[in-house]
Write a protein that binds this DNA or RNA. Structure first.
Lengths: 344, 344
DNA sequence: TTGAAAGCGCTAACAA
DNA sequence: TTGTTAGCGCTTTCAA
């Protein structure tokens, strides 16, 4: 059926195929008239070059890839937009590829690198625990952006940009403590989450300790594993159970803004007010959190910074300037209207 | 540098390259022992076949593609998830590809079809106005899902699944009217939007007319083109201006749920209540809308249905069973707590 | 059950 | 400025 190739175009135009190739690729050494004539025929016949053939032949491309694990995560959605804007500014072409939840990041990266002759890769999200060795097989520079890694065993990975989840979580909880809260519930990752959820829980614990508050496991609530991770529904369900359990608290800290909206709902349904009855805190700094009512106090991740730095780092690595660098950026506490001060 | 190929593996294993190819592709005509031996070497050397070469050589694949225009649209996000789940159930492998806002759907489709030897395509979202001719060049079946098309000039496109935006919007506004509202503001698409925004506005107008309500252009508000389309921020800004303008209304109908959250915020900031002072209605049926406070009354699009039918249609077309069918599905009014009845 | 060889459609020397 | 030609790495006949 379709199958119109460069050869056909060459025949139609009465030229060699390399001339057609030159026309397509705007090669300097081609007669502008010839080019125009060929391009017209190409247009007319709706000829589209086969990328597979192209990629196969080309010894190198100027393409970098952005690989996202967790495309359904709203936080990454936001980053994606920034990436799109920023990547347009550099001299490389780029490709955005989502990795399925069940796929292995490193394998996908490997395949894509071969297929597209990539110059570099930025990994957004995901866990990079089991694939270090495989990743080193890539043979091209890569940057891990917001990839969960346990801080206790520092990565050997060359390049990364992230926040310190433990520390930022500490800041959030410490803020709550300084506001006079002593019974602070946390809604954290799944019970078996040893990445982000664990780190943010660690920060919670340390903040409590530093503020002389006894740790109470009854105030630690885990996401439901049968509901979508970090989702509104999850925050709602967990909070509902928390409130119904009768465990007392004056503040609820959800480790994602979306879950915080679920917290809101559960609190309101219980006939309580925010922040008068319960103070609520989130994490991420999604734009939408400003529009919650009351607007959500949250730890805002430095998305723009992370995006820009990760691209910079990759560029440096491609140019052979940087081999290893771990950038840990600071999140910013956004004080809004969901947290009240408690006066004892 | 990297560049370990099938040839290398063949050499290492002391077999012909076709034997390696057979091992990789689990060809029935290969000695299991040989295969195992080769696979082990492949594993050891981290060999990954080059997809470009593969795609180039193969005369056909069993791949279908899902092309999304507007990956940042939360409504499509939700659909995406359903697609992922449903596509896993069929005997084809699939690939999800996002089309940039500035790219032409048809061109991308054409390229991808050639490159990956696609069997079929599902287009999710976008406008299919200028590319009909190009699309027919594809040479493979395709289904348009939720692709905005003007109902007045029915498409010649073979296969599509969608809702009737005009009609569903009519239902929403009619509901509001039946609840006694006579001053209903609408927040619709950009002023120059002739797709979804226009259709939903048309439905609004017709509902007003059928309910004997005078059309008032002061109640028609357009999205800001300098803010993200259908976004919370947009809904907020527009509502704020609406309220500040002093134009009276008892209900505000936003053509997306996200915008409705912006409406909430603006209403609350003005010191008003929902639904006592303003009734609010949305459109889409995002899961998150249930968690607004009060929970949002909205027109819920039949996402699961649309996904399933679009896949079915494509399968039928690939099997040559269906050549042309336009499915128009019904949306469902979700009555929740954001609309009050007005008693005169 | 295997290997040799012919391309898939393109780019990039190299000649002309 | 152009055409000829040799592969890129793989799958797939066709013989062996």
């Amino acid at each position: 059926m379709s199958a119109i190739t460069i050869k056909d175009i060459a025949k139609i135009c009465n030229v060699g195929i390399s001339t057609v190739s030159r026309a397509i690729n705007d090669d300097p050494g081609i007669n502008k008239n010839t080019q125009e004539r060929i391009l017209k025929v190409i247009e007319e016949y709706h000829y589209v070059p086969n990328n597979s053939a192209r990629n196969l032949k080309m010894t190198e491309s100027n393409t970098i890839a952005l690989l996202i694990k967790g495309i359904d995560n709203q936080f990454f959605q936001g980053m994606l937009k920034i990436y799109e804007a920023e990547l347009k500014k550099i001299e490389y072409s780029f490709l955005i590829h989502a990795i399925g939840e069940d796929q292995d990041d490193a394998s996908v990266a490997l395949e894509l690198t071969k297929e597209k002759r990539l110059k570099g890769i930025i990994f957004l999200g995901g866990l990079m625990r089991y694939s270090k060795e495989k990743l080193s097989m890539l043979g091209i520079p890569y940057v891990l952006c917001t990839v969960a890694v346990n801080m206790e065993q520092p990565r050997h990975n060359s390049l990364s940009v992230s926040i310190n989840d433990e520390k930022e979580s500490y800041k959030a909880v410490d803020y709550l403590c300084k506001k006079g809260h002593r019974k602070i519930a946390i809604i954290t990752g799944k019970q078996n989450d040893y990445a982000v959820g664990k780190l943010r829980l660690d920060g919670y614990k340390r903040a409590l300790q530093d503020n002389g508050i006894q740790y109470d496991s009854g105030l630690v609530r885990y996401m439901k594993s049968d509901l979508a991770e970090y989702s509104v529904a999850n925050g709602y369900q967990v909070t509902k159970e928390l409130i119904e359990s009768g465990v007392e608290c004056t503040a609820i800290y959800a480790i994602s803004d979306l879950m915080a909206l679920g917290v809101y709902k559960a609190v309101f349904e219980a006939g309580k007010r925010i922040p008068e009855d319960y103070s609520v805190m989130g994490f991420d700094g999604l734009e939408v959190a400003k529009y919650f009512h009351p607007s959500l106090t949250t730890m805002e991740q430095p998305c723009s910074q992370m995006v820009k730095h990760s691209i910079e780092l990759l560029m440096e690595a491609i140019n052979g300037e940087t081999e290893e660098k771990q950038m840990i950026l600071d999140a910013a506490l956004q004080e809004r209207d969901s947290v009240a001060e408690i006066v004892n």
